[in-house]
Simulated assay, not measured.
Amino acid sequence: MINLKTIAAELDLLNELNEAQLALSIRSLAPLDSAKSGDISFLSSKKYRRVLSETKASAVLLSEADAEFCPADCVALVVKDPYLSYAIISHLFSTESAIEPIIHPTAQVDASVSLGENVAIGAYAVIEPGAKIGDNAIIGAHCFIGEHSEVGARTRLHHRVTLAHHCVLGNDCQVFSGAVIGSDGFGYAPTETGWHAIAQIGRVLVGDRVEIGANTTVDRGAIDDTIIEHDVILDNQIMIGHNVKIGAKSVLVAQVGVAGSTSIGKNCTIGGQSGFAGHLEIADNSFFAGQSMVTKGTKQGGYYASGIPAQDGNEWRKMVARIRQLDKLSERVKELEAQLSQDS
């Protein structure tokens, strides 16, 4: 249980709470519609005001505009940005146990590794010669860190993360389970008998405060480096090809694929399952809807989309049938235009 005084201390409240309200005990976070007495919730969109009026939560994070709709028996925590405030206090309710800064006896850490202060290394982790691990970093169980790689201060590698040789992770990063950073990029030269692999001699350089999701792969550069700038978020199961550059504060949602040497600008948002061809330049502040197929770069930011949203199956079949007739229709239009020009 956490009292509201502790929660309020994490926030910039726009209203004042009395002593009785500050002493209120909060058990957990919950959605507005399922919250019970002892829970705290949040309202970040006015379309849910109806739910707010019926909530059983003991306290709610909300904006000034929504404060008047808060039930009388619920404590209103008025903030500028309810969703951000929810994100901040969510960590108070984390169920994950604290990680002690110890090195597990089964971990294999080469004698030449540079270890910072208060580093935690989990069971069966392997850290190869010349690697550097920053202060307060956490290396989970079964992680592999290749030779001469670097892990920044307060960065956490969850269990089973691979950081290949000579790659760099910045400070305050999180890399989730199964991610592979620095695997060889997809580079082959054709021969008469098949394919000849090209050595991938670049690195992966990851900035500060970057999050890389579970089972995401970031390939090392072929010659130059693959670069992920500060404050980027990569969701689960994303594929980043060699020599790709992703600009600061960009967000890529699950199952995005970015082919080699494409550069994505700053503050971009890439919807899930979007695919990017190689050697493209994507402008800052570009937003791509889910399942976008991107074959050309963008010269200015804006909203981009492709693909066909789901619809009634019968309507979809009719549409596809019409699309298949477009070539014939085009030819008929050309014939009619030719006849009209002759008649005139």
Results as ranks from 00 to 15, higher is better:
residue 58 S to Q: 04
residue 58 S to W: 02
residue 60 V to D: 03
residue 60 V to G: 00
residue 61 L to E: 06
residue 61 L to A: 08
residue 62 L to I: 12
residue 63 S to R: 11
residue 63 S to Q: 12
residue 63 S to K: 12
residue 64 E to S: 12
residue 65 A to G: 10
residue 65 A to H: 12
residue 66 D to F: 08
residue 67 A to P: 03
residue 67 A to C: 06
residue 67 A to R: 13
residue 67 A to G: 02
residue 68 E to Q: 09
residue 69 F to G: 12
residue 70 C to A: 11
residue 71 P to Y: 04
residue 72 A to I: 12
residue 73 D to I: 04
residue 73 D to A: 14
residue 74 C to K: 03
residue 75 V to A: 05
residue 75 V to G: 01
residue 75 V to D: 01
residue 76 A to S: 15
residue 77 L to E: 09
residue 77 L to C: 08
residue 77 L to V: 01
residue 77 L to I: 10
residue 77 L to K: 07
residue 78 V to D: 13
residue 79 V to C: 01
residue 79 V to S: 08
residue 79 V to A: 04
residue 79 V to M: 06
residue 79 V to R: 01
residue 81 D to K: 07
residue 81 D to V: 05
residue 82 P to I: 11
residue 82 P to L: 10
residue 82 P to C: 09
residue 83 Y to T: 08
residue 84 L to T: 09
residue 85 S to G: 11
residue 87 A to E: 00
residue 88 I to M: 01
residue 89 I to S: 03
residue 89 I to V: 14
residue 89 I to M: 08
residue 90 S to I: 03
residue 92 L to S: 05
residue 92 L to Q: 08
residue 94 S to C: 00
residue 94 S to Y: 02
residue 95 T to Q: 15
residue 96 E to G: 08
residue 97 S to W: 00
residue 98 A to V: 14
residue 98 A to Y: 04
residue 99 I to K: 13
residue 99 I to F: 07
residue 99 I to S: 11
residue 99 I to C: 14
residue 100 E to W: 00
residue 100 E to M: 07
residue 100 E to A: 13
residue 101 P to C: 14
residue 102 I to V: 13
residue 102 I to Q: 07
residue 102 I to G: 00
residue 102 I to F: 03
residue 102 I to R: 10
residue 103 I to Y: 02
residue 105 P to I: 10
residue 105 P to R: 08
residue 106 T to R: 09
residue 106 T to N: 11
residue 106 T to Q: 06
residue 106 T to P: 09
residue 107 A to M: 10
residue 108 Q to H: 06
residue 108 Q to K: 07
residue 108 Q to Y: 01
residue 108 Q to M: 09
residue 110 D to T: 05
residue 111 A to D: 15
residue 112 S to R: 08
residue 112 S to M: 11
residue 115 L to G: 11
residue 115 L to Y: 06
residue 116 G to L: 03
residue 116 G to W: 02
residue 116 G to V: 07
residue 118 N to I: 08
residue 118 N to C: 08
residue 118 N to R: 15
residue 119 V to I: 09
residue 119 V to Y: 06
residue 119 V to K: 04
residue 120 A to L: 01
residue 120 A to S: 15
residue 121 I to M: 06
residue 124 Y to N: 14
residue 126 V to I: 15
residue 127 I to D: 13
residue 127 I to Q: 14
residue 127 I to Y: 07
residue 127 I to F: 10
residue 128 E to C: 09
residue 128 E to R: 11
residue 129 P to H: 13
residue 131 A to L: 03
residue 132 K to Q: 15
residue 132 K to W: 01
residue 133 I to F: 01
residue 133 I to N: 06
residue 133 I to R: 01
residue 134 G to I: 09
residue 136 N to S: 12
residue 136 N to R: 10
residue 137 A to K: 04
residue 137 A to N: 06
residue 137 A to Q: 06
residue 137 A to Y: 01
residue 138 I to Y: 01
residue 138 I to D: 02
residue 138 I to M: 07
residue 138 I to K: 12
residue 140 G to S: 04
residue 141 A to S: 15
residue 142 H to L: 10
residue 144 F to D: 07
residue 144 F to W: 11
residue 144 F to C: 04
residue 144 F to E: 07
residue 145 I to L: 15
residue 146 G to Y: 10
residue 146 G to P: 05
residue 147 E to H: 09
residue 149 S to E: 09
residue 149 S to H: 04
residue 151 V to C: 11
residue 151 V to D: 13
residue 152 G to Y: 03
residue 152 G to F: 09
residue 153 A to S: 12
residue 153 A to K: 14
residue 154 R to F: 00
residue 155 T to P: 08
residue 155 T to K: 11
residue 155 T to S: 15
residue 157 L to G: 11
residue 157 L to D: 13
